[in-house]
């Protein structure tokens, strides 16, 4: 009896120790994960003279909220914001709508060539973007689309392989019988698509929307290639140009404030739709 109690309590102690170790590990990781953001917020609220100090001031004294106001006064922030929002909005609409249409064709419609087309669609996911970079660039140059949003926005309306796949998998979980019933009742494919498939697929459409948002909002290479005039820049592009003046070191507090403002919509969206973000990520990893 004593021996058993002894073993049990020893096991409990060992469990408690390993549990504590795991918590220390997780807490340290979480701390390191958040520290850059805290550092950023701290810098963004400092007076210029207090940025380059050792030891650093973690809590700025005084707190200088004007740094955020300066983004609006000394930088055409609203122009950049409008540009970014326009491109991002069109991206979300384009990618979601076109991918959903195609996904419907790949899941609930029967047409010759469907299998081959689907395999082709999946194969394009393996193709590095650089392979098509030069010809696509030449095409947009010849079309006279340089320095406009068109090269960034138009391709979004032709479906995105990954989201076609994601939506197709989701559509396949919607029972065939439901669609057959609607067809028997004389419902056309467009109405089935818009009034049955879309409302039933909100979670998958949300995942598509938020990941398109993050990708488009943070996109740097596209705007860098195609947008040249200052008034057309997106936030990411403008921030990069703004950052080059940071080498002189004078504007670091404003730069951090601007970077944080640029990150903010992503942070807010993430906290609002966390579950969907994680589902989307899990899906990308388990698609085999």
């Amino acid at each position: 009896m004593i021996a058993i109690n002894d073993i049990l309590s020893r096991r409990r102690v060992r469990g408690a120790i390993s549990g504590a170790c795991i918590y220390i590990f997780l807490s340290a990781g979480a701390f390191l994960c958040l520290l850059p953001l805290i550092w950023m917020i701290s810098t963004s609220l400092k007076e210029p003279g207090n940025v380059f100090l050792y030891p650093p001031q973690w809590i700025p004294r005084p707190v200088r909220w004007e740094n955020y106001a300066e983004i609006f006064t000394e930088w055409p922030f609203l122009t950049y914001l409008r540009n970014t929002m326009t491109i991002t909005f069109l991206h979300i609409v384009g990618v979601t709508l076109s991918s959903a249409l195609v996904a419907y064709a790949f899941s609930h419609l029967r047409w010759p060539g469907r299998g081959v087309c689907f395999i082709m669609c999946m194969a394009t996911m393996m193709l590095p973007g650089q392979v098509t970079m030069a010809p696509t660039f030449i095409m947009f140059v010849k079309l006279g689309w340089l320095d406009s949003f068109k090269p960034l926005v138009v391709p979004a309306f032709f479906g995105s392989a990954f989201f076609i796949f994601l939506l197709r998998q989701f559509f396949r979980t919607i029972p065939r019988s439901l669609i057959e019933a609607a067809r028997i009742d004389g419902c056309g494919e467009w109405r089935i698509f818009f009034f049955i498939m879309m409302p039933l697929s909100v979670p998958a459409l949300l995942i598509t929307g938020i990941y398109t948002f993050i990708g488009s909002w943070n996109d740097f290479m596209g705007p860098l290639i195609y947008l040249s005039s200052d008034s057309k820049r997106t936030l990411a592009l403008a921030l990069a140009y703004f950052g080059q003046s940071f080498i002189s070191g004078i504007t670091l507090h404003t730069l951090m404030a601007a970077s944080l403002i640029v990150m903010l919509p992503c942070i807010v969206l993430f906290f609002a739709l966390q579950k969907h973000f994680m589902q989307g990520m899990v899906f990308s990893g388990l698609k085999e």
């Binding site: 993050i214 740097f220 990069a240 950052g243 970077s259 990150m263 942070i267 969206l269 973000f277």
Partner: peptide, 9 residues
Amino acid sequence: VLSGVAAAM
């Protein structure tokens, strides 16, 4: 979700 230029800065 915080990739891109802002994170680079």
